[in-house]
Design a protein around this nucleic acid. Structure first.
Lengths: 333, 333
DNA sequence: CTGAAAGCGCTAACAA
DNA sequence: TTGTTAGCGCTTTCAG
């Protein structure tokens, strides 16, 4: 049961042709007579031939693999929905090809070193990078390596050459406009980390929407996307602007925290204060009340990153992409 | 910036030694003079040499990669916490080695075909398989291939040769005993799918605990792990056994559904009916009330699977593992 | 349209 | 302790 798979040479012998011919058939090149082709195909079937990918890689100088790298210091960041959804999207496209998918979680210094080696040794024909922090060393490393790289998301400091991102700004506008359409006029926001692209973009979207309606955008508290910071932000907002009648919160985790604080302060949601979150995490459906939020096309992000990378590898033309977000209306606003 | 990395031959030339010697230094074999070693190391540093993994693979007949394969018809199943946590665990061990990690999501027929090819062409030195359904074709395929295989979880029909599993039965006992310790005596259960090992094991654990206390175990409704089935199961239970004072629910998703039904029927949780779930998904902390549940060591599962696989690849002795689960007490019981 | 042969970059066996 | 060389299995000229 452990017998070595047959080689191309053996197939050639069996089919009574040269290895060159077998190779041509396998890579369905032209200039092969029907007769040889059939003989080869029969031999392949009979022997159960499977090409040796390693040998082929060595000969062609192509690995037949792409890598999905996730750079982060905090391993907990992998452990979320986002991650799984991206991979699902990536896989959908990879599955249409013969490529292998390598996963590189660069959580530690070792992980980063491994990534560097993959780049230098051309272990992958291309790389998709989810750089979760700003100014990511891997990002720079990758773009300098000469290996095709597609980024998921952008960073503040440096816009990658090729990227796919969600429309954070548009999503924030959507959310804020929804609040406006509900007749709210004293709308505040709890921002995410303002040293991230997403954080800034969502804040800008919020301000944009208010500016267009000529309303004040001065009710703002700063958070860092975490639930705890959402609680703190909501308290600040309530203290500074007790007249608040709605709040756009830049992440669902923060919104969950904010919801708790509102409850504690006796403000009914959405009657007294309407709340909209961002991300549409699973738990958004389970908060009390269920959270109205902005859905990001995460799986699509994975799919488009992969498509883009494949084109890059094939030297086709590509263009960076911003994917639309959409509002999911539930009970909180 | 796109220059081909130097080859071993070039290093040899630069260091003024033979390729054999360079190879020995790289694989730090013995029988190398200090002098040569240093010369080689210098040359490697100067040239920025990185070994070509493909060439090495071809020569050694080892791929230097292991695969994590997830078999499922339903892509949505990937998109959960479980998946991300397993990978985090796997990565922790992989990161200690030079191995690459390939990911194979066999959702479609194509995916399965790709997996078969990986097996036949020895694209990976070993495979970890998360077979999410019973009687999984991949599982059989893998074990017949001669490639080392470690399973995550077991199936009902066939216990894999090497596996790591969570102690579902023990966890269910833990949960039920907790209910007993609370003084509850009319305890029911909503089971998971009874054509899965986990479903059956959890049901058995429940019955075991009740049997040991001499209590009736006849309050049972059957679900399929889904939220909807949890709602249905809870209704059935309430109809058939209105005296119910506690329920062990075989998954958190079902428990979330059950909680809603209890609320609708005016039963206070945990006062009237105590509820314990299973899995400890993220949302368990957000239900109303927060769900007492059984935590599975998912990341550890990933870690142990990987360790086991590495030992298998090195022809070391291994033994299948059952990892302990633990009770997380929150508000619902 | 087909066959022969020279690599791809590395390892490993054998000589020296 | 070192150098030499024959592969690993496939692709790809180059002749024919």
């Amino acid at each position: 049961m452990n017998s070595r798979p047959p080689t191309l040479d053996e197939v050639a012998q069996r089919a009574g042709v040269s290895t060159g011919t077998v190779s041509r058939v396998i890579n369905n090149a032209k200039h092969v007579s029907k007769k040889s082709r059939e003989a080869v195909e029969r031999a392949i079937a009979e022997l159960g031939y499977v090409p040796n990918k390693t040998a082929r890689s060595l000969a062609t100088q192509q690995r037949g693999a792409i890598a999905l790298a996730i750079s982060s210091d905090d391993p907990a960041l992998f452990a979320n929905q986002f991650f799984a959804e991206v991979i699902t999207g990536v896989n959908a496209i990879v599955e249409e090809t013969d490529l292998e998918l390598m996963l590189v979680l660069a959580a530690s210094e070792r992980g980063r070193a491994r990534f560097a080696r993959i780049l230098r040794s051309r272990s992958a024909d291309g790389v998709m990078l989810l750089a979760l922090k700003e100014n990511d060393p891997l990002s720079i490393m990758a773009e300098q390596s000469g290996v095709p790289v597609v980024h998921g998301g952008r960073s503040l400091d440096r816009t990658p050459q090729w990227y796919v991102d969600a429309d954070n700004r548009g999503g924030a506008r959507l959310a804020t406009e929804h609040l406006l359409s509900l007749g709210r006029t004293r709308i505040g926001t709890i921002t995410g980390e303002l040293n991230t692209h997403a954080g800034v973009a969502r804040y800008l979207g919020f301000r944009e929407a208010l500016a267009l309606s000529g309303l004040s955008d001065e009710r703002v508290a700063h958070g860092d996307f975490s639930e705890a910071s959402g609680m703190a932000g909501m308290k600040t907002l309530l203290d500074d602007h007790p007249d608040l009648d709605a709040v756009f919160v830049a992440s669902d985790a923060m919104a969950a925290g904010a919801l708790g604080v509102l409850r504690d302060h006796g403000r009914a949601v959405p009657e007294d204060v309407a709340v909209v979150g961002f991300n549409d995490i699973v738990t958004a459906r389970y908060t009390q009340p269920a959270l109205t939020t902005v859905h990001q096309p995460i799986e699509a992000l994975g799919r488009e990153m992969t498509r883009m990378l494949l084109r890059l590898i094939n030297n086709e033309q590509v263009t960076s992409l911003i994917l639309p977000t959409e509002l999911v209306v539930r009970d909180s606003a």
